[in-house]
């Protein structure tokens, strides 16, 4: 068998105990074209340096664990093939706009805390003790299905310049999940979500850059979700002016 080609992966590293700022470390390793970047990082950890630290789990772009910046762009490392990254070198960094816990591991608590604020859950409307499933037509499912594909991988937060500038912005995923539930025919939570939607940290903070939609590995299109809710927010504002007292 012929020698496998090698590639250089440069990783930005940091450890909270280290008395130094983040540093770059280069690893040279053999690779296969059909191998994922995640598998290459695993090779480094298993064979070259067990201290290299990153999250991963499912290997198939559905668990949302392995986000990182690859050559400056937010990506899932399991979703990139080495053949597409060769000849390298490949530069891997922690996701932008998040505090770093260690190496490629970022602190995701801020976004997790924003999900309940955004009302990112269904508020059952009718009889909650029913034991039969309710009906929902395929057309009604289609109203929210795209926004329901969000895996909370946080790539959109790294891509969003507004989140980088203004961390209290609810951000693309939380607002997409807000729109997902608002658009669900079974949901009765629109009024509950309205305050978060209309707040300065809600939809109006979005400056329509659209990078969130470009980097989404699941085609969620948070930008479209936010635009929908901008329309709803504006409509509610006008209706409140025209019809005082309508708001619950």
């Amino acid at each position: 068998m012929s020698e496998r080609p090698t590639i250089v992966i440069e990783v930005r590293r940091w450890h909270p105990d280290a008395e130094q700022p983040p540093w770059w470390q280069a690893f040279e390793l053999p690779y296969r074209e059909d191998q994922s970047l995640l598998e290459a990082l695993q090779h480094i950890k298993d064979e070259l340096d067990g201290s290299l630290t990153f999250r991963w789990s499912c290997r198939m772009a559905i668990c949302g664990s392995c986000g990182c910046m690859v050559d400056g762009r937010p990506e899932l490392s399991c979703h990139l093939l080495m053949g597409d990254l060769a000849p390298g070198p490949v530069r891997v960094e922690p996701l932008a706009h998040f505090p770093v816990i260690r190496d490629l591991v970022i602190d995701q608590q801020d976004v997790l805390d924003k999900l309940p604020v955004a009302g990112a859950y269904l508020v059952p409307g009718d009889d909650t003790s029913a034991t039969e499933p309710s009906r929902q037509t395929p057309a009604q499912v289609a109203e929210y299905a795209q926004f329901a594909q969000c895996i909370n991988c946080l790539l959109c937060y790294s891509a969003c310049p507004q989140y980088g500038l203004k961390p209290d912005f609810l951000g693309p995923a939380a607002l997409a999940l807000m729109a997902r539930h608002d658009a669900d025919s079974r949901d009765a939570g629109q009024a509950e979500r309205r305050e978060a939607r209309d707040a300065t940290s809600g939809v109006w903070d979005c400056t329509l850059v659209g990078h969130c939609t470009e980097v989404c590995p699941q085609g969620v299109d948070p930008a479209r979700a936010i635009n929908r809710n901008k329309g709803a927010s504006a409509r509610d504002y006008l209706l409140d002016l025209l019809l005082p007292g309508r708001r619950r």
Partner: peptide
Amino acid sequence: LAQLERWGCPWSRRDDGRV
């Protein structure tokens, strides 16, 4: 499974809205 439906699970549907 009906409980999951009531909590918002987007089950694939028949044309008449049944699961």
